[in-house]
Design a protein around this nucleic acid. Structure first.
Length: 768
DNA sequence: CGGCCCCGCGTTTTT
DNA sequence: CGCGGGGCCG
């Protein structure tokens, strides 16, 4: 069986599969059959008598892990169940649960998501009386996350002169203290954040060599997917685990490294040869996915990057269609044109909806395309984005379950102590929190051990707290005998959540109620799946198992059958690893893609270029790129130049007809008759975009306004005047409002409609 | 103490 | 523009 399987592989792929001993570096270009090699290699290992429980395969997404499992079991049958295949985070979370007591945790520890972490940081900033403008929670958390990924603990960070100097330079000298307090609070809550899962694994292996040895013995063969995206913490875990066996196989493509913003180090793959000098290298260069045009066009772009491993990707498929450049006047027109193009291909090539993907740089861009597709009755699915589990009502339900499993989970506690309303308000919580911080214990412990009047809590409220405590305690008891579904159902009912939602007859209330129903269904489904996977049918699936699962799952992991045949909308990041026949890469504009944050440094720019490379190589048959001359960005009109990446595509692969033509101003998607969309080309862009409001704008010198526009002084402008604005044309000043530097003029423009303009920015000329 | 309203802020990208 | 958080009022 296995030998016939090898017939499916080309020569290099076959070599990479068969030589499974020792260190292997597989450089796998986009579409070169990377997953195929990985899965076949594992299947081959098994066929050679390697025990499945000694094989560890690490991926970055649950989807990749699931796909790998599926494909292997298609090759070799059910023996795959004992293989260790999962994401870095899930595998090491599992190990940490087993070894928790070595680190002073219990195996019931909670995994904090980003929202939880941010909230902890926020409360610390408050407690420390720090300037909330200078210390932004998301910012501080980002910094802590970065250093954690470099294995710098709070104590080490405090002692690190360089880090201290840097924080001082950024006028955030207390970050080390925040970090320390944050680590303490997580520990007291028996909680780990995403980064802790990797950091603590390293700590575990460092301070407990016996434990490390145990796992070195277990994992005889380690395979790592997307190796170019590993951060230092992940890299070191792998290095430690393979130190004895030296059986390691990493697969990756430096050209697709797009996660350096969260600590990924492209050096890990570039320097593989230093760590494993005995390594063998395999280059998968033939692309089986895309047309020659697409592969060549992608190559012509990525060539501009300086640091990369040498390889030559090629396709022997059809030459295929050239890449279309869709030039739109406004963001709405961009949506319309892309939707129209999709309709064209649907008819012309009898394509299905799910053959199409719209890829964008930032999630905020999705709206426009949703609107455009909806208008044409094209079904679509937004992939990623706000997860089901991030909805308020689901988080509430999950918070109950989390608190039952781990009563020290302060974030869960805070979320539900007064939901549904039971008369325990902010003041009480503040007092509780103060006591808890002083005692260095969780809110739950404080509530149950400190006398209420010591905290200044009146007896009426204390009674309510007791009731809450015994409610949770009763759930804890039931959790021992009830499975995840029974418990969740009971919790939602007896906590009062269900009644609270049922009484809410607003549309949002109804939606929430339905979401809770869906939540319960998903638990039921989870139990069924787990039982199907284990040998017996009646395995008891406790709530702990369900919680472990959802902490590390994202929306991208759920695939519902009704979403199968829809146009997919997603960020380029989440498109990595996927393929579609027809791909639209939208928002190809300077400051958007490449983003304004990235065009400063050459390194960041190279990462953006790799991102573009990833986007183009998602397409099998046809890629299109689009941009808009003007678009709304945080409520303001902005205008940007077409992305430099368009110019970097070798022009022979472009469908130049559309690229070169300046189309006349068509009234298109904006049939909702908002006046602001009816610009004439003459009034518009890009020549007249040089107002301070549009200071993101990059305007070529040649197209600066020919006629002088001299604005009048802001102080001279008064209500009732007729004024002219470079972009909005003429209009009447309705009123002047505000004071200080925030004086605003409300102007009703004849064409553009009513606008509120900040006087310190707006340049207005008095007409009369 | 809870609900409502207003203000201010934000955009990369995600396990 | 849309969301979340904070503040104010009932």
């Amino acid at each position: 069986m296995i030998d016939t399987i090898l017939d499916d592989l080309n020569e290099v792929q076959c070599e990479a599969v068969v030589n499974y001993e020792g260190a292997s570096l597989i450089i796998a270009g986009a579409g070169s059959g990377k997953t195929r090699v990985l899965t076949y290699r594992i299947a081959y290992l098994l066929s050679r008598g390697v025990a499945p429980q000694t094989v560890l395969a690490l991926t970055f997404t649950n989807k990749a892990a699931r796909e790998m499992k599926e494909r292997i079991s298609n090759l070799v049958g059910p023996s795959t169940r004992r293989l260790w295949i999962g994401t870095f985070h899930s595998i090491f979370a599992r190990i940490l649960r087993t070894e928790a007591e070595h680190l002073g945790y219990t195996s019931a520890f909670t995994i904090y998501d980003t929202t939880d972490s941010r909230s902890v940081i926020k409360s610390i900033i408050k407690e420390m009386n720090l300037d909330e403008n200078r210390y932004k929670p998301a910012n501080v958390l980002g910094r802590i996350s970065m250093v954690k990924n470099n294995l710098v603990t709070a104590t080490a960070y405090q002692a690190n002169g360089e880090a201290q100097a840097q924080d001082a330079a950024y006028r955030q000298p207390r970050i080390a203290d925040i970090y320390k307090a944050y680590a303490a609070k997580c520990k007291n809550a028996n909680a780990m954040d995403f980064d802790d899962l990797l950091l603590n694994t390293n700590i575990l292996f460092h301070y407990h060599p016996d434990v490390l040895e145990k796992y070195q013995r277990i994992f005889r063969y380690i395979l790592v997917d997307e190796y170019q995206d590993t951060n230092t913490a992940q890299y070191l875990i792998v290095k430690k685990l393979t130190a004895a066996s030296r059986n390691i196989c990493v697969v990756g493509d430096d050209a697709q490294s797009i996660y350096s913003f969260r600590g990924a180090r492209i050096e890990n793959i570039l320097n593989f040869k230093n760590d494993y000098p005995e390594y063998k290298e395999y280059k998968l260069e033939q692309n089986y996915r895309s047309t020659q045009t697409i592969v060549n066009a992608a190559n012509s772009v990525i060539e501009k990057n300086r640091r990369q491993l040498k390889k030559h990707c090629f396709s022997e498929g059809h030459v295929g269609e050239k890449i279309s450049v869709i030039k739109a006047f406004t963001d709405q027109e961009e949506g319309f044109l892309v939707a129209s193009s999709i309709t064209d291909y649907l008819y012309r090539e009898h394509a299905d909806y799910n053959h199409f993907a719209i890829l964008y740089r930032t999630n905020a861009q999705s709206r426009i395309f949703e609107d455009a597709l909806r208008k044409k009755n094209i079904p679509y699915k937004i992939y990623g984005g706000l997860s089901f589990y991030q909805r308020a009502e689901i988080k509430d339900a999950v918070a109950y379950l989390r608190l039952i499993v781990n009563p020290n989970d302060d974030e869960a506690f805070k979320r539900i102590i007064n939901y549904p309303t039971r008369g325990i308000g902010d003041t009480t919580l503040d007092r509780l929190q103060m006591a808890a911080t002083q005692l260095n214990v969780s809110l739950w412990t404080t509530m149950n051990t400190v006398s209420p009047d010591q905290m200044g809590i009146r007896s009426g409220i204390a009674k309510k707290m007791k009731e809450f405590a015994s409610l949770i305690d009763s759930f804890k008891t039931r959790a021992l005998s009830d499975d995840a579904y029974q418990l969740a159902y009971d919790v939602i009912k007896r906590s009062g959540m269900l009644a609270d939602l049922r009484d809410n007859k607003t549309p949002e209330g109804v939606a929430k109620y339905e979401n809770i129903e869906e939540f319960l269904n998903s638990i039921k489904e989870f139990i069924d799946n787990q039982q199907a996977e284990s040998e017996e049918t009646n395995t008891f699936i406790p709530i702990t198992q369900y919680l472990e699962n959802i902490a590390l799952v994202t929306d991208a992991d759920t695939d519902k059958p009704e979403d199968r045949n829809k146009v997919m909308l997603m960020t380029i990041h989440s498109a990595k690893g996927l393929e579609f026949n027809y791909v639209y890469i939208v928002g190809m504009e300077e400051t958007l893609f490449p983003g304004s944050m990235s065009s400063q440094s050459e390194q960041d720019l190279e990462e953006e270029r790799r991102l573009f490379y990833v986007a183009v190589t998602r397409a099998a048959k046809k890629a299109s790129v689009s941009y808009a001359q003007i678009r709304y960005r945080w409520g303001n009109l902005t205008s940007n130049l077409p992305s430099r990446f368009l110019r970097e595509i070798d022009a022979v692969y472009l469908d130049n007809a559309e690229w070169a033509t300046v189309r006349s101003n068509r009234i298109t998607a904006n049939d909702d008759n908002t006046p602001r969309e009816t610009y004439s080309l003459k009034q518009g862009i890009p020549a007249t975009q040089r107002t301070p409001q549009a200071r993101n704008t990059i305007v070529p010198k040649s197209s600066l306004p020919q006629d002088e526009f001299i604005p009048d002084k802001a102080a001279d402008i008064q209500a009732g005047m007729e004024v002219e604005h470079k972009r909005f044309g003429t209009g009447k000043v309705i009123s002047i409002e505000g004071n200080g530097s925030d004086i605003k003029a409300i102007v009703n423009f004849y064409v553009a409609g009513q606008k509120t303009l900040l006087m310190k920015f707006a340049q207005l000329r008095i007409v009369k």
